[in-house]
Amino acid sequence: MSLEPLTATDFHGPASASAARGIAGAVSNWASGHASDILIKICSILSLLGLWSFAAFMLPPSVIPGPVGVIRILWSEVMAGAIWSDVAISMTRIALSFCAAMSIAIIFGFAMGLSKTAERFFDVWVVCGISLPSLVTILVIFMTVGLNETAAVLAAAIPVTPILTINIWGGIKNVDHKLIDMAKAYHAGRWRIIRQVIAPQIAPVIISSSRFGLGLIWKMVLFVELLGRSNGIGYKIEFYYQMFNMSEVLAHALLFLLIMLFLEIVLLGALEQYLFKWRPAQRRI
C-alpha cells in the first residue's frame, strides 16, 4: 500500500510534539517562528520608540517628553508604590465590567445563534447598540444611576456588550452541522454530541471573544474613570492632564498598556493557541 506524500510539511509536527509545547511554548507565541520573524518584531518595536523620540525631539518636552524620561518617571512611580492602588482599582472595575459584558453577550449570543425568533428580535437591539456612541451611553448611565461604582462598571460594560454579542452569535452560527450529522449517524448520544462535538467548536469562540472584549473594556474603563470617578488610572491620567504634566500622563498610560498587553496577548493568547493547536500554523493571531 503506497502512501501519498505529506503535502503539509510546513505544519507543526505530530500532535504529541505540539501538545508537549503546550502553554509554556505558547507564551512566546507572539515572538514565535523563524529568527527573521523575531528580528522583524524587534525592529518594529525599536522603530516605534524611534518615532516617539523623533516626535519628542521636534516638539517641546512639555508636549511630548521622550521615552527615556517617561520610563524614568514610570520607574519612580512604580518604586514609590502609590500607583499600584490606582492600578488595583482600575483592574477591579475591568474585571467586573468584563464579567458583566461577557455574561450578557453569551446569553444573547447563544439565544440568537440557536433561535431564529430571538435572532430576528434582538438583531435590531444589537444594531442600535452598536450604532449608539459610547459617550452617550456612558453619560446616560451616569445621569440615571448616579456617579458611583455601579454606574462606572455598567458604563464600561454596556457599550462593549453588543459587539461581543455579534462575535459570539457568529461563532454559534458557524458550528459545523455536518459534524453533528456525522456524530448522529454513528449513533452518538445527545450528551456526547454536546460535550465532544459542539463544545469544542464553541470554546475557541468564547476565548477569542474574551480576548477581544478585554481589549475593548480596559479602554472603556479608562474613559469612564476620566469622566466620572475620582480614582483609578483613568482619573490619574485626567488629573495630570489638567496639570499639563505630559510625562506623568504617558507614564501612567504606558504602565497600564504593558499590564493589559500582558493579559491580552500572553495569557489569553496562550490559551487560545492551546485550544487551536490542531490548526495549521499560518492562522496565528
Binding site: 502512501l3 501519498e4 505529506l6 505530530p14 504529541s16 490542531w278
Partner: peptide, 14 residues
C-alpha cells in the same frame, strides 16, 4: 495505510 499518521490532526493531512 495510515498507521504512521494516527497522531496527526486532520488538517495536517491531504
Amino acid at each position: 495505510g495510515l498507521e504512521d499518521f494516527a497522531d496527526f490532526y486532520p488538517l495536517q493531512l491531504s
